[in-house]
């Protein structure tokens, strides 16, 4: 292994972790909520659109993870550029990606629990759709906070002049 590229390796690992963990969490979450959505539609097909929205809520973490991975790849030169970054920069990119990866994974699974419960609430009383959506959306807050920290970190690294 060329040790000159070890910084690039860590940065790329960070991008992969952000995309993989947040994406995996979303896949699990959307899958769980999808089971509930199917159960709801089996009882009342008119609920399709409402439960579809609730099912998709845990899917946002996967998008955030993808965004962080893209930003990292652009910054480190993988998508056009020299790709020449130091070990320190590489580790910093890895650290910057971790909030989105870790929080994305757990928040998507947590949010799916709230989505399942919300779908069951809508199944019982469709007029509660608006309120029911608030519960899973509350979990989204923490995924957004992690996204924000990861973005700020990624954009801050080049300014350090390392």
């Amino acid at each position: 292994m060329d040790t000159n590229n070890i910084g690039l390796f860590f940065a790329l690992a960070g991008a992969a972790i952000a995309a993989f963990m947040a994406g995996a969490g979303s896949a699990i979450g959307v899958g769980r909520a999808g089971q509930a959505a199917a159960g709801a539609v089996s009882e009342d097909p008119s609920l399709f659109v409402r439960v579809l929205i609730l099912q998709l809520l845990p899917g946002t973490q996967g998008i955030y993870g993808l965004l962080i991975a893209f930003l990292t790849l652009m910054n480190i030169g993988i998508m056009g550029g020299s790709g020449d970054i130091s070990l320190t920069e590489g580790l910093l990119y890895l650290a910057a990606c971790l909030p989105m990866g870790i929080v994305g994974f757990f928040s998507a699974i947590g949010q799916s629990g709230a989505s399942v419960a919300a779908i069951q609430l809508v199944t019982k009383d469709p007029s509660q759709f608006g309120r029911s959506m608030i519960f899973p959306v509350m979990v989204e807050t923490y995924a957004i906070l992690a996204l924000l920290i990861s973005i700020l970190s990624i954009f801050g690294i080049p300014g350090l002049g390392l």
Binding site: R32, Q35, A36, A38, G39, A40, S42, E43, T123, K124
Partner: peptide, 17 residues
């Protein structure tokens, strides 16, 4: 617990009856 998500949601609809 994930095994019964579909079933429980379907039962929520049936509980209305």
């Amino acid at each position: 617990t994930d095994k019964y998500i579909y079933a429980v949601t379907s039962i929520r609809g049936k509980e209305l009856k």
